[in-house]
């Protein structure tokens, strides 16, 4: 059993938990994920690692209530336990392997949407600890849905916040902020890392392609085992089939076939289910239903 040491509501339907998993905490790196399973009958759910404490032996996860299992998970309290907690899975971010001196001369832009701010955080923090300040854009639907702003502020170079409805920070989509920074403010970036709903990452990539800005995305498709066994998470990257769990989760965003990936992510959502999902998710609805053509921040 893996004990929950902290359970905190970050926003409506978004929960943060610190979980005691010393093996994972000892070996994980930014960019990797874990698989959690609540009880005997639960699903295996992949979640990107949001933070880790090697001394305390804890892993921080952040998740949004989007389906049967995550709704149940949100009810867990401090001192409750997960039956299963496996990882770290997937590959660490490329950043971790890059030459630090070279990295210091690069200007990096992180673009996070909704709950995607959580997996962006350990990367920006890692850079900060290594003396590199990256610019970060976080987008949310509304002020209430914004997470980790204070934490990110402490470790980012410039932090730009935008909301769909303008209830906080700028008004508009993350891509509007990107356009403003690059076109109006003359900012130059060497690489962009974006994590959020697939539809958001798709539009970020369409934009960065225009600027010829190398873009890394973190894919979050349907998974079962997370160790390369099932192939549920397969996606097209260029002309190759890749498994997000063992080849990713990060890929060159300009090569990912997002339209196919978005369709595949709807596999277990029926027509009725999608409607229900939209109702249940309310203003946390992030376009994963397949009915929404338009992009939102999260």
């Amino acid at each position: 059993m893996y004990r929950i040491l902290k359970a905190q509501k970050l926003a409506d339907k978004i929960v943060l938990m610190d979980v005691y998993a010393p093996r994972i905490a000892a070996n994980c790196q930014p960019g990797q994920f874990v698989i959690v399973k609540m009880g005997e009958n639960g699903e295996r759910i992949p979640l990107t690692i949001c933070d880790y404490n090697r001394v305390e032996g804890t892993i921080t996860i952040v998740f949004q209530e989007v389906g049967v299992s995550t709704v149940k998970m949100a009810d867990l309290k401090e001192n409750d336990s997960f039956r299963d907690f496996a990882g770290p899975l997937g590959n660490p971010s490329d950043l971790v392997h890059e030459d630090l001196e070279e990295l210091k001369h690069k200007k990096l832009l992180f673009v996070a949407g909704g709950v995607g701010a959580a997996p962006v955080y350990p990367q920006v923090k890692w850079l900060h600890q290594n003396g590199i300040e990256a610019d970060v854009i976080i987008g949310a639907k509304t002020k209430e849905m914004l997470i980790l702003e204070d934490e990110l502020k402490k470790v980012s170079g410039n932090l730009y916040v935008t909301t769909d409805d303008g209830s906080y920070g700028r008004t508009g989509l993350v891509t509007n902020v990107m356009e403003d920074l690059i076109q109006n403010q003359g900012k130059k970036y060497d690489a962009c890392i974006t994590i959020g709903p697939m539809i958001m990452m798709k539009f970020v990539c369409l934009l960065t392609r225009k600027y010829d800005l190398k873009t890394v995305v973190s894919m979050n498709p349907v998974m079962v085992d997370g160790t390369g066994m099932c192939g549920a998470c397969r996606l097209m990257v260029g002309d190759q089939v890749k498994f997000a769990c063992i080849d990713g989760p990060e890929f060159d965003g300009h090569l990912v076939d997002f339209d196919q990936a978005i369709k595949r992510s709807q596999m277990y959502k029926t027509e009725e289910g999608r409607v229900l999902l939209k109702q249940q998710e309310g203003n946390t609805h992030h376009g994963g239903c397949g009915n929404c053509e338009e992009m939102t921040n999260g």
């Binding site: 699903e43 079962v224 066994m229 196919q260 595949r264």
Partner: peptide
């Protein structure tokens, strides 16, 4: 990669393990 194409591993893992 269409929806509805599975590896036997995925189909069996869902049915047997899960």
């Amino acid at each position: 990669n269409a929806n509805g194409v599975f590896s036997a591993n995925e189909y069996l893992t869902r049915a047997n393990l899960m």
